[in-house]
Write a protein that binds this DNA or RNA. Structure first.
Length: 539
RNA sequence: GGCGACGUGCCCGAGUGGUUAAGGGGGCUGAUUGCAAAUCAGUUUUUCAGCGGUUCGAAUCCGCUCGUCGCCUCCA
């Protein structure tokens, strides 16, 4: 949706309201989405701690919330999406000592890596990427406020949040203030209660530190998010997102800090995405009482400690769109099982779309008298508002089908952003269009019915509109394996062979024709003899 | 130990009380094709971990059992 199709916001468009329901972790049920200050919507997502390269699990949240923002915008809201960067914490400090370079340099490198990965996956809806180290004044004054109001206490240069003072503590994660945070950590001796958590940690002489009213130190993890979200989105904002693993203690603590400091609820809707898990290597029998193999024992949440990594490599071999599609196939609250084969399968199913787009382009390129001569799929216009995109099928059978599909797609997304169900509608639509092309012989080139071509173009436009809401099919797919430049040359060479094969087949020399095809197949190039001509793809 | 999630047909995955259980992948069959591929059609699919209960009716609600996983320490 980057190409702003200059949608003049019409008055009747903005007055129509979608009915979007979202699952709120706080209430544990789906609620009607009603922003606090419509049409404004504020979303805050907990981003990464940038101490190492990102892995695929880090992409789940950003892809989902990028999609959520796209959908809410499409539904008429004016959305601000914030993803923070934690660029100061113990791991970063340790790494900096180990490598003998400043913490900021590591943070800088890893942030660049993170952003590059996001870009590859089509995540481009982020409005603010606040860094903790850029918000020290806000963090410090936040802690001062809490101390002044009696929710925090300082001990020897450390400052802790007094959990007992917050009657709402534990509501989000359904935990009592007792028996949390283990034994209280290193600073247990200083805490009034083991559940109390650090707002400010005093630094040792050789550690990086910031000056504060409590002496040199650095902020606790949770307070960073409270301070930054407040700075950008205010006392109370609409949506706070993050992985399920952050619900406790991170989000519970953020909620306590912000709620107590501003005497207002921090967030209206808490959204938590499911975590990614490594798939089992072998099929586990279930009733077997044998010892679990090391592989099975390792199956679990994808994390760095379990060896996940190399996202940039994965993107290079799989393409960012494949990965985005793979993530969006599953509902955001479900666990996503990751495995090379499963990712590969998602990629295979994506090919159906790409082949259709090629087919579409070839048909429209031959048509001369439509309203959109030579219309390429990736150049089709796309509506930025769901109500503008509505249309009257006017009795046309294909358009009636596509109109119904569009309604189904919107209903799925309205129901807690069910992107998996929405994608299935896209598959259905592609089948409808292929059927239409076959039934009206649009691909054979023999003077296709103009009205049928028009219906095809209109329908394809709807598919492009819906897909772009998911951040899919925005631009032609990158070739897996990267390194283009040569791709154009390869294309020419393959077409040369296609022409030679065509000549051979025209004189019924099938042996030569098949030899060309077979040898190309061996090289990983598949020829597709369609009615509209022969094309090729990597296999 | 405390809190929580999940178990859907060969595989991946939608679906939370009521038309034939979405969609994708794979297998098979047919149409089409010189043969393939692609496309389309059909099939694999009365079945939702197991047992019991509620109900006119359950994959969906309740109970128990079995299994998997997460959080309670840093984690998206």
């Amino acid at each position: 949706m980057s190409t702003a199709a200059a949608t003049a916001t019409e008055s009747d468009t903005t007055s129509r309201k979608p009915e979007i329901r979202i699952y709120n972790t706080l209430s544990k049920r789906k609620e009607l989405f009603e922003p606090l200050r419509p049409p404004q919507v504020g979303i805050y997502l907990c981003g990464p701690t940038v101490y190492a390269e990102s892995h695929i699990g880090h992409m789940v949240g950003p892809v989902i919330f990028d999609t959520i923002k796209r959908y809410l915008r499409y539904s008429g809201y004016d959305v601000t999406l914030v993803i923070n960067i934690t660029d100061v914490d113990d791991k970063l400090i340790a790494k900096s000592h180990q490598r003998g370079i400043p913490m900021s340099q590591i943070a800088c490198e890893m942030t660049a890596d993170y952003l590059a990965n996001l870009k590859e996956l089509g995540v481009n809806q982020i409005d603010y990427l606040p860094r903790a180290t850029d918000h020290m004044p806000q963090i410090i004054s936040f802690i001062e406020d809490l101390e002044k109001k009696g929710f925090a206490y300082a001990v020897d240069g450390d400052v802790f949040f007094d959990v007992a003072r917050d009657p709402n503590y534990g509501q989000l994660s359904n935990r009592t203030p007792d028996a949390q945070q283990g034994e209280g950590g290193e600073a247990a001796g200083k805490k009034r209660s083991p559940g109390d958590f650090a707002l400010w940690k005093s630094s040792k002489a050789d550690q990086i530190s910031w000056d504060s009213p409590w002496g040199p130190g650095r902020p606790g993890w949770h307070i960073e998010c409270s301070a930054m979200s407040h700075q950008i989105l205010g006392d109370t904002f609409d949506i706070h997102g993050g992985g399920l693993d952050l619900m406790f203690p991170h989000h519970e603590n953020e909620r306590a800090q912000s709620g107590c400091c501003h005497d207002a609820p921090m967030v209206k809707y808490w959204l938590h995405n499911g975590l990614m898990r490594a798939g089992e290597k072998g099929k586990v029998g279930g009733k077997s009482d044998r010892e679990p193999s090391p592989d099975e024992a390792a199956a679990g949440k994808i994390s760095r400690s379990k060896g996940a990594g190399g996202l940039a490599d994965l993107i290079r071999t799989q393409t960012g769109e494949r990965i985005r599609f793979f993530l969006l196939r599953t509902h955001y609250r479900s666990t996503i099982i990751y495995g090379e084969e499963i990712l590969e399968e998602a990629g295979t199913s994506l090919e159906t779309f790409y082949r259709f787009f090629d087919r579409f382009n070839e048909i429209t390129s031959k048509v001369e008298t439509t309203d959109h001569p030579g219309q390429l799929f990736y150049d089709l216009p796309t509506h930025t508002n769901r109500f503008d995109g509505d249309f009257d099928p006017a009795g046309d059978p294909l358009l009636t089908e596509i109109h119904a599909a569009r309604e189904k797609f919107l209903a799925a997304m309205d129901d807690d952003f069910n992107s998996g169900a929405a994608i299935s509608v896209l598959f259905d639509s592609i089948r409808s269009l292929n059927r239409h092309i076959d039934a009206h012989s649009l691909a054979t080139g023999a003077d296709p019915e103009q009205s049928e071509v028009k219906s095809l173009i209109k329908s394809a436009t709807v598919i492009r509109e819906l897909a772009s809401v998911l951040g899919l099919f925005i631009k032609p797919p990158a070739t897996a394996g990267g390194d283009d430049q040569d791709t154009a040359m390869l294309d020419q060479v393959v077409h040369l062979l296609i022409d030679l094969r065509k000549e051979a087949r025209e004189r019924k020399d099938y042996a030569t024709g098949d030899a060309i095809r077979d040898r190309l197949t061996d090289l990983g190039i598949a020829l597709l003899d369609k009615k509209e001509g022969t094309s090729w793809e990597r296999s």
